[in-house]
Every structure is written in C-alpha cells, then in structure tokens.
C-alpha cells in the first residue's frame, strides 16, 4: 500500500569497484576547479566526444541551483535521464570531499537507472583552489583552470593544481588578450606536478577537448583492463 518506495536495489557501503550485483561499476572521474574556468563546457565537450563510443552519465554538484545540470540538458549532450544534479547546501566541496553520501547515491542511482555505464563524470560546483574529490567518490580527478584567471595559478599550487590526475588549462585562445604567458604556466605546472599530465585546451574549436578526451580514454582502458 505504500506508494513511495520500490524494492529494486541494494546499497553498496563504500566505493567498491563492484556493484551490489557483482558487476564492475563505471569509472568515475571528477572534474573540479574555480568558478568560470569551463568545467561544465569541458564536461559537455567530453560527452560529445565520447558518447558514441562509451555509455556515459553525469552528476553535477551545483552551488545553489541546478544551472549546470540544466546547461547540459539544454545543450542535449546526453539524454536527460543520464544527468543528475546533487544539491550541496552551499558547500560544494563538502559534497565531493567530506560528505560524499549524496554523490555516491547519485552515481549508484544512475547505474541502476540507465546502466550499464562505462563512465560517470562527476562535476563539482565552482569552488576555490583547495577543493578536491574524495577517493571514496572518484577514481581519478581533473582540475580545470583557465588562463583568464591569471597565469600565476599554477605557481600558487594548492591541492587541485598539485595533485589532480590531470590539470586542464582552458581558454588558451584568450591568452593574448588577458596577458597570460602559456609557457610560464606550463613551466610552473611542471614544477608543481612533476610527472602528472597537463592539457592546454580551447573549447571554442571543435577538436579543443581532444587532449582531455584522449586522457579519459586512457583511464577507461586501464579501468576495464
């Protein structure tokens, strides 16, 4: 008689690589970075580049709206049932790092609803340079900054710039206009990150996201190996 609940799934306690039915779950990649650096545009471009090859879903963590989810819906990069928004109570870094329970629920719900999935992109709400994803939530993370935010960001470091599995420096087409030195950014990034990769992108061109997409393909190959 209770109309609210159905009885179709069980919950896995932690971020195990297997789902409750024993099958391997999707690879989860987090995308974080400051407000306006192009996280949502990167997610959209990745979906377009990879959706014909892989089964993809997206979780967005908006600061105070569903705008990022709605941007993705409007741009029809994926069918709506493959996009889920998590509300973060004005604390996006909490939802991806300190209390990941709502995000874990969202990725599990997506796998249940539209799975099997190869890849789930978890986009953080625009936050500051210290926001990183919990390893309990994602398998790898991308940190997106842009040249317009200042070419000293890589030098300043911070957990996102220093430890992300991939650092994306976006909007390279704007470098001449905002006086950012791409060479200096690349050098500083290498100093901060050692061997960890850096991708320079300009999403205004159709192929702009290719270095990120190639990196994701590499991660997927390693995950399913």
């Amino acid at each position: 008689m209770h109309l609210d609940h159905s009885h179709d799934t069980t919950t896995v306690v932690s971020a195990d690589a297997a789902r409750s039915d024993g099958t391997r779950r999707a690879l989860r990649i987090g995308l974080g970075g400051p407000v306006g650096s192009g996280k949502t545009a990167t997610v959209a471009a990745l979906c377009r580049a990879l959706r014909d090859t892989y089964s993809i879903a997206v979780v967005t963590n908006d600061i105070y709206t569903r705008e990022d989810a709605e941007f993705l819906l409007r741009n029809a990069v994926l069918p709506p049932e493959r996009i889920q928004a998590v509300e973060t109570g004005a604390c996006p870094h909490t939802a991806i790092r300190d209390d990941i329970s709502a995000n874990l629920e969202a990725v599990e719900d997506l796998e249940d609803a539209v799975g099997p999935l190869d890849l789930i992109l978890v986009e953080s709400g625009g936050d500051n340079l210290t926001a990183t994803f919990s390893k309990g939530l994602v398998d790898a993370q991308v940190f997106v900054i842009d040249v317009a935010g200042g070419d000293d960001i890589p030098r300043k470091g911070g957990p996102g710039v220093t430890t992300a599995d991939l650092l994306v420096v976006n909007k390279t087409d704007l470098a001449p206009y905002v006086g950012s030195d791409l060479g200096r950014m690349a050098h500083d990034a290498r100093t901060q990150r050692g061997e960890l990769p850096v991708a320079f992108t300009s999403l205004t061109s159709g192929e702009g996201v290719k270095p990120v997409a190639d990196w994701v393909r590499g991660q997927l190959a390693a995950w399913s190996a």
Partner: peptide, 27 residues
C-alpha cells in the same frame, strides 16, 4: 536515511543495519 545507512554500515556494521538496508533499499 539512505545516506545515514551508508555511513552507519561503514562505522558500525551489523546484521540489523544490513536487514533494514535490504528491506528499504531506497532508504
């Protein structure tokens, strides 16, 4: 409830929590 269940099963795993999680998978 579902989110608490996840944290609770990690912190204090037991049959009672497992049974409730199985009976109410959506929380």
């Amino acid at each position: 409830g579902r989110q608490l269940m996840r944290a609770a099963r990690a912190a204090w795993p037991c049959d009672a929590l497992d049974a409730l999680a199985a009976a109410r998978p959506r929380g």
